[in-house]
Simulated assay, not measured.
Amino acid sequence: MSDPSDKRAKAERVAALRPAYRADLAAGPARFLGARRTTCPWCGSHKLSDRLRTTDLLQHKPGRFTLDRCADCGHIFQNPQLTEEGLEFYYRDFYDGLGEQRMSGTFGGRGAMYEGRARAMLPHDPAPKTWLDVGTGHGHFCASARTVLPGTSFDGLDFTDGVELAARAGRIDQAHRGAFPDLAPELTARYDVVSMFHYLEHSTDPDRELRAAHEAVRPGGHLLIEVPDPDSRYARLLGRWWLPWLQPQHLHFIPVGNLRRRLTELGFTVLAEQHAEPH
């Protein structure tokens, strides 16, 4: 049974936040979207069509969002895309702030899944010395991965204050706060492993993020990427209710063939590709 005092405290926090939200929405949510693209951001093709139109189904913040699909390469992307101001508005109180406790509980309860991610590295490097988790959030993956790789130093990178909370909680050894492409030059060839677990779909420019990863991974090191599969049968069956669409936060959906080719062009060698069963 929930504590009435907790409900009152949450109601008070919501009431305190409401004036700022009203001010943000005074001119309508359309101002949070940029100009509509006429070309695919992945291959430059003009052959675009609507893939999905939806709303914010989790936070229920106002706004309508469109995902377009490129007929030539299959890339799916939010069009028009959120501006920096829009990203701040729709991320606010989701992972941090009002939503911090809920999301911390959600991610903190996935230890077995996080350990499985760490074990995926063992056939390729059973004892990496340094690991950078990009988009680490509150560092729960790193905390669980230590049980699989106790000799590995785990650092985290994120643009929210969650990464600093993770460092204070001891889940990561070092916190890097900011945009990965901006921080990559100071991280050049520092890491045996760089991981991007459900990160690329949030980025405004996935290609730039992959180039940053190539910079941060040492020669002979490894990059792990986990992303939603836009070709999933469940994406077609469930329509707008397929959770990984996660509008408006997810900006890009990269087909695996596109990702494999771009990684190869950057100089990576793809060692393994895994498709998980729906769960």
Rank of each mutant, 00 (worst) to 15 (best):
I225C: 13
E226F: 12
D207F: 08
A184M: 03
S195L: 01
V194C: 09
V193S: 03
H222P: 04
E226L: 15
A216S: 14
A184T: 03
Y199H: 14
P185D: 09
R211A: 13
R190F: 03
A212E: 06
R211F: 02
G220L: 10
E209A: 07
R208S: 07
A189R: 10
L210M: 02
E201N: 12
R190C: 13
H202C: 00
L224D: 05
E209L: 03
R208V: 04
Y191M: 08
G221C: 04
T204H: 09
D205R: 11
R211Y: 02
A216Q: 01
S195D: 02
V193A: 06
V194N: 01
R208P: 00
V193L: 13
L223Q: 07
E215D: 10
P228L: 14
L224V: 14
H202T: 00
A212T: 02
V193N: 04
L200F: 05
G221D: 04
E215F: 06
A213H: 05
L223Y: 04
S195A: 13
E186L: 07
L224P: 03
L210D: 05
H202K: 02
V194A: 12
G220C: 12
E201Y: 04
H202R: 00
D207A: 13
P219E: 06
P185G: 09
D207K: 15
E201W: 01
R208G: 03
A189K: 10
G221I: 00
G220S: 14
A189V: 04
I225G: 07
L223M: 13
M196E: 10
A213G: 06
D207G: 02
F197E: 01
A189F: 06
V217Q: 09
S195H: 02
V217I: 15
Y191S: 09
H198T: 03
R190N: 10
A184Y: 05
R208Q: 08
D207W: 07
V193Y: 04
E201G: 01
L200Q: 06
V193C: 08
R190I: 05
E201H: 01
T204Y: 01
Y199P: 00
A212P: 02
R190H: 14
V227A: 15
P206N: 11
V217K: 05
P206C: 13
L187P: 07
F197A: 05
E209F: 04
E186S: 15
E201F: 01
S203R: 08
L200W: 03
P185M: 08
P206A: 11
E186F: 01
E186R: 10
R218Y: 01
E186D: 15
A184N: 02
S195W: 01
S195G: 09
L224R: 06
T188N: 07
L187N: 10
G220K: 12
D192Y: 08
H222L: 15
D207T: 07
H214Q: 13
A216L: 04
T188K: 15
Y199R: 05
A213Y: 02
H202L: 00
E215K: 14
V227D: 10
R208H: 06
P219T: 11
H198R: 13
L200Y: 03
R208Y: 01
T188C: 11
G220P: 08
T188M: 07
E215Y: 01
G220V: 12
V217T: 14
R190G: 12
V194L: 08
A212G: 13
T204V: 13
Y191A: 11
H222K: 10
R211G: 08
T204Q: 13
